[in-house]
């Protein structure tokens, strides 16, 4: 076999392998981004990894020994209970907008990650004059 053939074959194998990894990876790494109301209406996403945006309901934060173990979030229409036992972002507080990521278990979301939403780096385009 000519050298350029061999090389092309080897590189094709790499490309196909990476393509396969990318294709399978994108499915398992995809996280659906929804509001609690949208989530409630999507039976097909019951077992999926989701990221929900909502505001921490005042008075809903549950603690054990001062440590947060759960809270409820709302988008104004639907309230969802969140179980969470892990590190919280620095700006977590009642009435703050948060993103919770996890899967539904029973009636609550078992969150694996809680993030506060911070303003995006850049603003939307300002309208012209």
């Amino acid at each position: 076999m000519k050298a350029s053939r061999k090389l092309a074959l080897g590189l094709a194998v790499i490309i196909v392998a990476v393509g396969a990894v990318a294709y399978s990876g994108i499915r398992s790494a995809a996280v659906y981004y929804l509001t609690p109301t949208e989530f409630a209406g999507r039976a097909d996403l019951r077992g999926a990894q989701v990221r929900l945006a909502g505001r921490v309901v005042p008075g809903s934060v549950r603690r054990i020994d001062g440590r947060v173990v759960g809270f409820r979030i709302t988008d104004g229409a639907t309230v969802l209970d969140v179980h969470y036992d892990g590190p919280l972002p620095d700006l977590f507080a009642e009435n703050r907008d948060v993103l919770v990521e996890g899967r539904l278990g029973g009636a609550s979301l078992n969150a694996t990650r809680v993030m506060t939403t911070h303003p995006t780096e850049y603003k939307e385009g300002t309208p012209g004059r």
């Binding site: 990894v21 990876g25 994108i26 995809a30 996280v31 659906y32 981004y33 990221r51």
Partner: peptide, 13 residues
């Protein structure tokens, strides 16, 4: 659907 592709995908590749 609004989805987010997380770090696991990128790390894996």
């Amino acid at each position: 659907d609004r989805i987010n592709v997380g770090p696991p995908y990128f790390n894996q590749v």
